[in-house]
Design a protein around this nucleic acid. Sequence first.
DNA 1: TATTGATACTTTAGACTTAAAATAAATCCG
DNA 2: CGGATTTATTTTAAGTCTAAAGTATCAATA
Lengths: 180, 180
Amino acid sequence: MFSGPGCRRRFDLAVAKESPPVSPKSGVDQEAEYRAQTRLWLRLLACTTLIEGELRRRFREEFDFTMPRFDVLAQLDREPSGLVLGELPKRLMVSAGNLTPIVDRLVEDGYITRTPSNLDRRVQIVCMTVEGRKAFRRMAKSHGSWLAELLAGFPADRLEGLTGELDELKGVVRDAMQKP
Amino acid sequence: MFSGPGCRRRFDLAVAKESPPVSPKSGVDQEAEYRAQTRLWLRLLACTTLIEGELRRRFREEFDFTMPRFDVLAQLDREPSGLVLGELPKRLMVSAGNLTPIVDRLVEDGYITRTPSNLDRRVQIVCMTVEGRKAFRRMAKSHGSWLAELLAGFPADRLEGLTGELDELKGVVRDAMQKP
DNA sequence: TATTGATACTTTAGACTTAAAATAAATCCG
DNA sequence: CGGATTTATTTTAAGTCTAAAGTATCAATA
């Protein structure tokens, strides 16, 4: 019927009070934990949505560029000898099909090159051009200062602590997804 | 040329080592803070991307439903008397134009109703139907248990602390965006 | 009352996403 | 060697998403 894939959702904010899930733990404790988990997820999403939206807006206004395009360049910037195309979807956590038109466009615009491998004609190597690298550096500088501006109010001595917690969270979620 | 709006991007992962931004603070300290801020942002994005992707996948598989649709229902579920349409984009942090087709389809599918206000014919009131409410409750239950499953490995006694930090972060970013 | 301006939505154009199907090239194996 | 399977990428279909322009409708006022 409807559904289908797509989206990328910057949505889902504020689900709040749902009924508690059927669960193993006793009663009240589990319900409280459940609510705490939901709140965490909603905060996480709200923070990301907020920052991402602002960064995207500035990318567009200042450079007439998009974040996905920037992200591809960011990956290639640290690979002077280029990258196998198939590496990109993994690193950027997006689907492969998604990348095709983005890479197409970056090639068209002269930021990167795409050359088939001699050893395996299925494989393609993407590599940043000199101009691409120049453009990327310019944008990365701004990207960094925008981020610094947005996060300036957060105590510097707690940045690492929070990052560590999120790292742990990421690991926990990844493990949970691996299991079944 | 290109750019344009759109996306919603779940991208931007791993920017890592850029050159430091020109900034007021001294040298080394600022550079370190800058890197810490970037790392925080990338972790935030990675966590959100990971969880969101999994939730979306399950919504699709289990209910043939999408998160944006679910989010609209979630908002309406707590407003028994309905909601002014214009409230939705604000609460969900999305653009108004985006909501039009989503609401259209929810109406079409019988989950919600949309009725023009008698007092002001520009305004529309959206309200969940009985069936919509039933469907939402069922999905919300699963949504909650999926989240619980994904976050189960994170210590329960630190959930609130992390949520609080993210709350603070959100406030900081919002303030920074307000200023100029 | 007729103009002006502000609101509340909708439409349009352009980009990004994903899942699933399709293509093409390489590898395995009988 | 030749068919079957795997792997790398592209294509397709369906949905978000945003910004900007367009359409009503209301409100204020000259």
